[in-house]
Simulated scan of single mutants.
Amino acid sequence: MVNYQAAPLDRTFAALADPTRRALLARLDAEDSLSVSELAKPFPVSLPAIMKHLDVLSDAGLISRSKTGRTVTCQLTPAPMEQAMEWLARYERYWTEQLDRLAAFLEEDQWQPNPPSSSSDGSKPRRKKSTKRGPSRSK
C-alpha cells in the first residue's frame, strides 16, 4: 500500500486533535508572533505542559520557534495545514459528487415506491394461541 505523505499528514492531524493545541494555533493566527510565556498566559495549565504542546506542534511543522536571548517566540507555519486542507478537499469533492448523484437519483420522476406485494394483502397477524392455565397455588 502506498502512503501518500502519510507521516507529515498523520503528525498534522494528531497535533490538531487536541483542543489546547488548536487554541494555541488560533492565538498565533491572531498575532504574528508571541513569546512562549505570552502564549501560555490564558491557559490553566503549567508552562511545562504548554512547552510539551508546543513541541508537538513544532514536530508537526505547524509552528516555528526562534530564540532571541532568553525569549523564545513562536510563529504559525501554514504549509502543513495547507497540505491537510488539500487532502480534505479531495475527499470533499468525492463525497460531493457521490451525494449529487444520489440526489439526482432520488429526484428522478421514474422512481416509484414499491407497491405492496399481493401476498401480504390477504394475510392478517395471527392470534396467539391461548394455553390452559396450570393449577394455581392457593394457600
Rank of each mutant, 00 (worst) to 15 (best):
residue 113 P to L: 05
residue 105 F to R: 13
residue 91 Y to K: 14
residue 101 R to C: 08
residue 100 D to W: 04
residue 123 S to C: 00
residue 132 K to H: 06
residue 85 M to N: 05
residue 94 Y to Q: 14
residue 97 E to V: 09
residue 124 K to G: 00
residue 126 R to M: 06
residue 129 K to H: 03
residue 89 A to I: 05
residue 124 K to Q: 04
residue 112 Q to C: 08
residue 97 E to S: 14
residue 117 S to E: 07
residue 125 P to F: 03
residue 137 R to Q: 09
residue 110 Q to N: 15
residue 81 M to L: 15
residue 90 R to H: 12
residue 130 S to Q: 09
residue 74 C to L: 03
residue 135 P to G: 03
residue 78 P to V: 06
residue 78 P to I: 00
residue 137 R to G: 06
residue 91 Y to P: 03
residue 135 P to A: 08
residue 100 D to Y: 09
residue 77 T to A: 13
residue 134 G to C: 02
residue 99 L to N: 11
residue 135 P to M: 02
residue 109 D to Q: 11
residue 112 Q to G: 07
residue 80 P to D: 00
residue 129 K to W: 04
residue 113 P to E: 07
residue 109 D to E: 15
residue 124 K to H: 07
residue 99 L to G: 04
residue 129 K to V: 03
residue 105 F to I: 10
residue 129 K to T: 01
residue 75 Q to R: 15
residue 134 G to L: 06
residue 132 K to R: 11
residue 76 L to C: 07
residue 82 E to R: 07
residue 129 K to A: 07
residue 92 E to C: 08
residue 78 P to R: 05
residue 135 P to L: 08
residue 101 R to L: 11
residue 74 C to Y: 01
residue 89 A to S: 13
residue 87 W to H: 13
residue 117 S to H: 06
residue 109 D to R: 13
residue 119 S to F: 02
residue 89 A to M: 11
residue 117 S to I: 00
residue 137 R to E: 10
residue 98 Q to A: 14
residue 92 E to L: 09
residue 74 C to V: 08
residue 133 R to D: 11
residue 118 S to W: 06
residue 121 D to K: 04
residue 97 E to L: 14
residue 129 K to Q: 01
residue 137 R to V: 11
residue 81 M to S: 02
residue 133 R to W: 06
residue 131 T to Q: 05
residue 74 C to I: 04
residue 100 D to Q: 15
residue 133 R to I: 01
residue 123 S to K: 13
residue 105 F to A: 12
residue 91 Y to H: 15
residue 100 D to V: 08
residue 86 E to Y: 05
residue 136 S to E: 08
residue 126 R to S: 03
residue 125 P to G: 09
residue 89 A to L: 10
residue 112 Q to F: 14
residue 75 Q to F: 00
residue 84 A to L: 01
residue 110 Q to G: 15
residue 74 C to A: 12
residue 89 A to F: 10
residue 92 E to F: 09
residue 91 Y to N: 10
residue 139 K to L: 12
residue 118 S to G: 05
residue 111 W to D: 02
residue 119 S to L: 01
